[in-house]
Design a binder for these strands. Structure first.
Lengths: 205, 205
DNA sequence: GGATATTAGGACCGTACGGTCCAATATGCA
DNA sequence: TGCATATTGGACCGTACGGTCCTAATATCC
């Protein structure tokens, strides 16, 4: 992949996460990526829409590397991994000073009703995210109550985090996200079998 | 308030909740409200921005009447009222077939970073909403654990509901919201004192 | 009746948008 | 060397946008 392409994608990602897709013009992207003109841009992307799709994919890959990867760490207890993942979401948000939200939630709210192409792709992103959590919960099932519904719980976790990020942006207060993250951990802990927490550090016995 | 004005506001509310504020043009609103021309519109509103503010206010008033009012019903146990309120949010969402989201969440995601005027007004909406829940929790405090943090819990409830509405729109599946609503009730029930007067149903359907 | 809103309809303006086309130069690689 | 790709720079197009201005026909209310 050429340098220029990633340069354009990076600039577009920043702009889109700041102002949304609709309010980001191709000219803005050109300026952000320091291109000479429109023909230069359209040499790499056939339309603004396609640029948007690629930006979304890259955002997810970045999130998969820096966030979701934690869910798969093999040496850590699954439920602890889930807590670490929640911490990572908080950390990612605080990197932007709590201002920029989850790129998926933003695009979802902006385009889910208006643009079917984006809606489908965002749905796929959430599904991949949810499936990571589901398999973690499956791995942790010996520690969980029998009636835990992994599909529902994974959706709840994502919804709570997305809602929290949104409220954090509106209030411009990172502590909103921190509080909700802490409560979310408690909600997850609610599903843990009594005494399972004691089982955890098996290495100590 | 003149008929025309409310006619315009209603048309604008529908369009904005369907396509967002930025993607709704004044011409669209004029067409939707069956006005004769732009001068007719600008006779009632000095700008599109001001129209947006008034639409937001009306959406909140509508939500206050049809949703938040439940939180203040004097004859019902406070914690049961909270459950009924959550049911009402689900019902409001299903009215639009699960497609249109919370008007506040939509505008928040679209404009929180880009438009300070809207951000402040949306923040006020969430604050009024949160304060209603806070005073309900205060009323219910004899039934709650001593360490319940009403500020945090109220934020959690709102974030979970907003996130749930967002995911429901993306997946086009109302059962997402229903599941999260049920889980949210369980989370709230977690804060209830053992043996408190009001016993909350634990749904595990 | 006369003053005041309301409705109607259209011309117009400056700006921005996504996108196309073209001509010329630079660069890298076989 | 030669050919393809990358880069530059700009003109251009059709459309849409928010907003202004102007005129004139109706209602409404004192």
């Amino acid at each position: 992949m050429s340098d220029r392409r990633t340069q354009i994608l990076d600039a577009a990602a920043t702009l889109i996460s700041e102002r949304g897709f609709t309010s980001t013009s191709v000219d803005d992207v050109i300026k952000g990526a320091k291109l000479s003109g429109k023909s230069h841009f359209y040499h790499y992307f056939k339309s603004k829409e396609e640029l948007g799709y690629e930006v979304l994919n890259r955002q997810f890959e970045r999130f998969a590397e820096r966030g979701l990867a934690i869910l798969r760490e093999p040496m850590i207890d699954p439920l602890e991994r889930l807590n670490l993942f929640i911490d990572a979401v908080v950390a990612l948000q605080s990197e932007s000073g709590g201002r920029r939200g989850s790129p998926f939630g933003n695009l979802a709210a902006e385009l889910a009703d208006a643009h079917e192409g984006f809606r489908v792709r965002i749905e796929a992103v959430f599904e991949r995210w949810a499936s990571q959590i589901r398999s973690l919960l499956w791995e942790a099932r010996p520690q969980l109550h029998d009636d835990v519904d992994a599909v529902r719980l994974s959706r709840f976790i994502i919804a709570a985090l997305e809602g929290a990020v949104l409220m954090t942006r509106v209030k411009r207060d990172l502590s909103v996200l921190e509080g909700i993250a802490a409560d979310l951990k408690r909600f997850i802990a609610m599903h843990v079998r009594d005494g399972a927490a004691m089982q955890l550090p098996r290495h100590f016995e």
